[in-house]
Design a protein around this nucleic acid. Structure first.
Length: 695
DNA sequence: ATTAGGG
DNA sequence: CCCTAAT
């Protein structure tokens, strides 16, 4: 159990909550798994801390209005967070952790459920939304538009990664928790937070959205959809041309797009008279849905007070829904922790089955973090189910509720049938990056002018005729008059193969807009990881643009968007002019983020030279070894050599029968490896001087 | 940027 | 090879 300091919630808005680290993070090398676990726990604790500090005495069952008033009193941002952590370490499944984060900002984003209000660069924005639109889907989403999208991206990364772990680990435990209320989860927070990491953290702007992907194997755990800002919706029967337009007219000016509400694929329907764009109604619907979700009796009595009231006529606004989502999300995370901690030994064999999932998930999460770290490029995360999971229909579809007819029935749905015009397919452009830009400006250009140039370049890049293509299973849908329904893009269809290809019209010369096969990533992975770079004649000391320009960060995993790398060559010009020169960047160079380096096994000669170098220099100073053995060969880094040596030692130390590989070094060579290893192990190679200097 | 070590 | 922590 972790005790978090409760801060004075009455201290007024401007002051930031001071968060205490609930735990001391051990320093020093930690095993990876342990690190991961601690990181997760730490993140959650941080979240819990800040949340609790923000919330105070807020009552679970207090009325929404009361809470709103109360929270608004001390939180100018209109956000309160509440975290209940009932059981931190918790081997006990019956107990759980609930996280409740109330989004109360009626001012900023009044009627919008989990909407985002984006005002400008500096304003705390609210953003969040995510969802998984389907019970058996796997969408992980976090949508938000903001002027400074890095934060959003980071949040996306964090929430996705964390949540993903939870997803893969904890579903089983969740279903065993009788008090799981809703099969959806969401964590959102608009409170600016000093926290820099962790689930639910808001680096600078509040932005968090967590929507755990679902496991089909454990269908009990399902997702409730949430509204996703900046999403594109299109009616099922809309023509493909309409869809193109929809994509093309996306608001890319960092304005909050209209929020479209989605609905669970499991067949939520609203009973209310009006299905307007009222978030409250939406939430109401969702809450209702949640309350009714006792399909198999797994969640019998479990209804939050607010949820209960929702049936009784009280519109919980979106609080109840959000809360329950968050509750669920927290449970997911907690269960994940528990599992990771090995505290679910009683799960027996299933634990093993999930090991792989965990690994892959973690890897994805790592990838995500790394990508963000390296270039802060928004990588749309795909909560793609593992192989053993079955992608089910509706994984790509969810249905906007607002202003639309009731959604279609889903496969699970006993709900009303789909009226053809009522079924919308929601497309979410998860990431919208700008391809690489090469900009040349004279030396005497001011930084400000450079900024403007870049701004213009980016703006024109996007504003310029953008050609959007819709790809289905890699193929471009040629006929724009084809309705989505005809194209198979409709509710009930597997939308995981849908992609968008976006390219600048002006550029015709290079790659086709079709997603190259090797780039085509599975289900819902957004590609587009080009960087925007500004090249100046002389490095501008104070200005670099290494970050991608993300216009949108959305969340469902089914829609893949891509900006084809081409950029309109808007007229090159001499360096002396301020004119903008945008040239298409060579695509080959940069690896897409997250893309693995091509494997290049060491050849025997390479191994020989490596061994020779190590024999001479010892291991440990891999930089020198690398230089000695490979010179300036960029293909092999010292890390590579280090790894190779490690592998060589391992290979040499195992029986020959177990050795495998394309080019197994000879036994003689391996003996040399062992000899050198032993030799330098005694010699403390690190202290050895590198060059046998002179003499 | 390097190094070390786990995955 | 990747990823990350620690130098």
């Amino acid at each position: 159990m972790v005790f978090r300091k409760k801060l004075d919630e009455g201290s007024g808005g401007p002051s930031r909550p001071q968060v205490r680290k609930p735990r001391v993070i051990p320093s020093g090398p930690v095993k990876r798994s342990a690190r991961l676990k601690k990181k997760q726990m730490y993140a959650l604790n941080l979240l819990a801390t800040v949340a609790e500090s923000l919330s105070s005495d807020q009552d679970d069952s207090s009325s929404g209005s009361d809470m709103e008033e109360t929270e608004a009193g001390y939180n100018s941002k209109g956000t309160s967070v509440k975290v209940e952590q009932l059981d931190e370490e918790a081997g006990d499944n019956s107990k759980g952790t609930s996280v409740k984060m109330e989004q109360l900002d009626e001012v900023v984003a009044p009627p919008v459920l989990d909407s985002m209000a984006l005002e400008n660069d500096c304003s705390p924005l609210e953003s969040t939304a995510l969802e998984n639109g389907c019970c058996k889907g796997y969408a992980v989403g976090c949508a938000g538009i903001c002027a400074s999208l890095r934060q959003t991206n980071l949040c996306l990364s964090e929430c996705v990664s964390t949540q993903n772990v939870a997803d893969t680990v904890s579903l089983e435990s969740l279903v065993k928790e009788p008090d799981v209320l809703v099969e959806g989860s969401l964590v959102s927070c608009t409170k600016p937070s000093p926290l820099g990491h962790g689930l639910g953290t808001i680096p600078e702007y509040g932005t968090i959205a967590v929507c755990p992907p679902c496991s089909t194997g454990l269908a009990l755990v399902k997702q409730e959809p949430q509204s996703i800002p900046a999403m594109i919706t299109s009616q099922v029967d809309a023509s493909a041309a309409t869809l193109h337009n929809a994509v093309g007219t996306m608001d890319m000016d960092t304005k909050p797009p209209p929020v479209v509400i989605s609905e669970s694929s499991s067949g939520v329907h609203l009973d209310g008279p009006d299905k307007g764009h009222e978030s409250s109604q939406l939430c109401f619907g969702e809450v209702q849905h949640a309350a009714h979700r006792d399909d198999d009796g797994k969640f019998p009595q479990s209804v939050l007070p607010s949820t209960s009231r929702s049936k009784g006529g009280y519109l919980p606004h979106y609080l109840g829904d959000c809360r329950t989502r968050r509750l669920f999300a927290t449970r997911m995370r907690k269960a994940a922790r528990n599992k990771i901690c090995g505290e679910m030994s009683n799960k027996g064999s299933k634990l093993n089955v999930r090991g792989k999932k965990i690994a892959t998930t973690r890897r994805r999460a790592q990838m995500q973090r790394t990508m963000l770290k390296t270039k802060k490029v928004a990588e749309c995360y795909s909560a793609q189910p593992s192989d053993e999971e079955t992608l089910t229909e509706t994984s790509g579809t969810s249905f906007p509720m607002g202003g639309q007819d009731p959604p279609c029935a889903s496969e699970s749905g006993q709900k009303r049938p789909c009226a053809s015009e009522g079924c919308n397919v929601k497309f979410i452009i998860k990431s919208f990056n700008i391809p690489e830009l090469l900009i040349e400006v004279p030396e005497n250009a001011t930084v400000g002018s450079l900024k403007r140039i870049v701004t213009d370049a980016v703006t024109s890049t996007v504003e310029g005729s953008l050609r959007v293509r819709v790809l289905l299973q890699g193929k471009i849908i040629q006929d724009d008059n084809t309705t989505l329904q005809q194209a198979g893009i409709c509710h009930g269809a597997k939308l995981d193969s849908i992609g968008f290809s976006l390219e600048c019209e002006a550029k015709q010369d290079s790659q086709p807009s079709v997603i190259a096969p090797e780039e085509t990533q599975p289900v819902g992975t957004s590609i587009v990881q080009q960087l925007s770079k500004v090249k100046c004649e002389e490095p501008s000391p104070s200005f670099t643009l290494n970050d991608p320009v993300d216009y949108l960060l959305g969340g469902a995993a089914q829609v893949k968007s891509e900006i084809s790398q081409g950029i309109a060559a808007a007229g090159t010009s001499g360096v002396g002019e301020l004119a903008l020169a945008i040239v298409p960047a060579p695509r080959s160079k940069q690896r897409d983020f997250g893309q693995r380096r091509k494997r290049r096994p060491f050849s025997i000669p390479e191994v020989v030279s490596l061994v020779e170098a190590v024999e001479k220099l010892g291991f440990g100073r891999w930089k020198n070894v690398k230089y000695h053995a490979f010179g300036d060969n960029q293909e092999r880094t010292y890390v590579d050599l280090k790894d190779k040596w490690k592998n060589l030692v391992h290979t040499a130390s195992i029986p020959p029968q177990l050795r495998r590989g394309q080019a197994i070094p000879s036994q003689d060579l391996l003996d040399r490896v062992l000899a050198a290893q032993a030799y330098w192990s005694l010699r403390q190679p690190k202290l050895e001087d590198q060059h046998q200097p002179c003499c």
